[in-house]
Design a binder for these strands. Structure first.
Lengths: 138, 138
DNA sequence: CTGTGTGCAAACTCTTTGCATAAGT
DNA sequence: ACTTATGCAAAGAGTTTGCACACAG
């Protein structure tokens, strides 16, 4: 259960002050099922729930949450930046054109044979994006 | 060898008229080793070789080439769109922050356990991005 | 109090578009 | 000739920034 108290704790652990805006966004992001959202989608949701927050603060907060490991940035294609509330190991389906992202649970998908990174580098994350298109026999 | 004649053939097969700009960009893109470039990088290169071409035409041409299957768009992270002159099966290392993309030859890397796509969808492409960061023991 | 966070608007980057001119077939 | 491509400049989308005010510790 992600009540307001829990979100205070999440913010506290992340070293972020529990401002009203962060608590509000935390409610939207860390309550309910995992999702993929853009800054604009999140703002529309906040507005829909009569929360008062500016787009700039949404961007700030999304980046702060991402740095704190509470969100993950997803690079699929196109210009928009998606933030994933699922920070566990998993990968994505991406439906070209429709801007739809779907989770692929990690257990189902494995990557083998990753080459040794160049000198002085280490692997921080592996993103697999399976691009989908409508099948023509549908 | 990708001489001007060969590029004419490439364009012809793609159904693209062999304009001076397309031939010039073809020279830059389809000659030499495979690379990952943005529109701006390509323009700088063209200018450096005294080619005359506008940025709008570079964007147009990159997209036309991509649609024709002569280039591949690479989504890593951040705002810029990279185009990959290597259209064979392969994946990428991405060094966060440095905007550096490196090829991982396909033979070395395998993806297993891709779930069945949703009804009416089929897999068109699989992109694996291995994110790298400086190792702290370096 | 003191420093961090927020909001607004303007700036910024990357990319696309509209339309007149130029070039290919 | 007829059609497609190009170039320019302006518009557009998404994101970031600067600075004054507000709020948390």
């Amino acid at each position: 259960m992600n009540n307001s108290q829990t979100i205070r704790e999440i913010l506290s652990k992340a070293g972020l002050r529990p401002t009203r805006q962060r608590l509000d966004l935390g409610d939207l992001l860390f309550t309910g099922v995992d999702r993929h959202l853009t800054a604009e989608m999140l703002r529309d949701e906040a507005i829909g729930k009569n929360m008062q927050i500016s787009l700039a603060t949404i961007y700030n907060t999304l980046h702060q949450f991402t740095e704190a490991g509470l969100l993950r940035e997803v690079a699929v294609s196109g210009v928009k930046t998606y933030f994933d509330t699922n920070i566990g190991n998993h990968h994505h389906f991406y439906v070209s054109g429709s801007n739809t992202i779907l989770d692929i649970p990690d257990e189902q998908l494995e990557v083998h044979g990753i080459p040794v990174p160049p000198e002085g580098m280490e692997v921080s994350q592996i993103d697999v994006v399976v691009h989908l298109r409508p099948s023509r026999d549908a």
